[in-house]
Amino acid sequence: MGQQPILTVNNLNIDVSTPYGVTRTVRDVSFKIEAGKVFGLVGESGSGKTMTCMSLLNLLPDEAKVVKGSIQFRNKDILNYSEEDMRKVRGSEIATIMQNPMTAFNPVRTIGRHFIETLRTHLPITKHQAREMAVAYLEKMDLPYPKNLLKQYPFQLSGGMLQRVMIAITMSLNPSILIADEPTTALDATNQLQILKQLNWLRKEYDTGILLVSHDLGVIAQLADEVAVMYGGYIVEKAPVFKLFNRPMHPYTRVLLESRIGLTRRKTKIVKHISVPPPNLINRENTCPFLERCEDADHTCSSYNLELKEYEKDHLVRCLKSR
C-alpha cells in the first residue's frame, strides 16, 4: 500500500463572487489522499465540500477562484496546469462520480456511446476493442446483460444501475484518484449499500485513492479511513475514523454525531438538534465559524484567530475549548 500521498491539498482557499458580495467558501483546507485509502469529507450543505472537489479537477465555475494554496498531484501543482494538460489528467488520473447519475449522462446517447467515447478519448484503441472493454467493466460492476445495456438509453436504467455504469466508465481508465461527491445520496437504501461495497472493492483491487464526500455519517463510517469534518468552509476536525467517532473533540462534530438516528426509537431518545442557520460566509472575520451555534462558546472564542491544532497524534481540531 502506498505511504506516499498521491494527492496533497495545501492550505486551499476559494472565494466565490456573488451578487451579494464575495463569499469565503473554502478556507485553509489541507488534506492528503493515499493510494488504496478512503478520505471522507463530511459537512452540511454549503460547507464547501463540493467546491473543494471541483477545485481538484480544476473545474471551478467562473465565479469561483482559488485565492491561495496548492493542489499537488504526483508532486506537481495542478492549479498551474494548462487546460490541455488538465484534460489529460481528468478522467484518466483523477476521476469523479457525481451525485445525480440521471443528469450526468446525455439523455439522447446510449450507454455504449458514452462508454466508447470516454475510452477512445484517452486510449488508442478501436471501437471494437472499446466495446469489449466496456462489456468487461460492466460485468465487474455486477450489471446484468452488459451487451444489451450498451444499447440502452440512460432513462431506461434505474438510478442505482446508472451510478454503477458511471463507476464502470470511471474505473475503465484506471484512475489513481476517484472523487465521489455524494455518490449515494440520490439512491435508495439497498442500492446505496451496494455502491459502497463496489467502491470498497475498487480501492482494494486497483489501489485507487478515494475522496468520499457525504453529509451522511453512515456512509462515511462504512468506508472512510480518515475523516475531515467541514463547517463554514473550514476543516474543523480531522482524524482517523475510529478516533473521530469515539472521541469527537469539536462541538460541531459532537452535534453531528448526536444527530445520528441509527435505529434508535424516538421515544427512547430525542435527538437534539441545533436550529440556528448556517453561517453567513460573506466578509466574515477569521474567527470560529461555529461561534453562533456553539453551546460551549464564550467571549474568549470571538477574539481568537483559530488554527487547526494537533490535539493528539493525527487528531486535529480547530477549537479553542478542546485544548
Binding site: 455486477d142 437504501a189 439497498t190 446505496q192 449499500l193 459502497l196 461495497k197 470498497n200 472493492w201 482494494k204 451522511d216 455519517l217 453512515g218 456512509v219 462515511i220 463510517a221 462504512q222 468506508l223 472512510a224 475514523v241 475510529f242 467517532f245 454525531l257 445520528r260 441509527g262 435505529l263
Partner: peptide, 22 residues
C-alpha cells in the same frame, strides 16, 4: 431483512463485517 441490513449504521467498523461479500 434486506432493507434492515442495508441501513448504514453511523458507527465505524460496522461496515467491516458486511464489507465485500463478493
Amino acid at each position: 431483512k434486506k432493507l434492515l441490513s442495508s441501513v448504514l449504521l453511523p458507527y465505524p467498523g460496522h461496515g467491516s463485517d458486511t464489507k465485500m461479500i463478493y
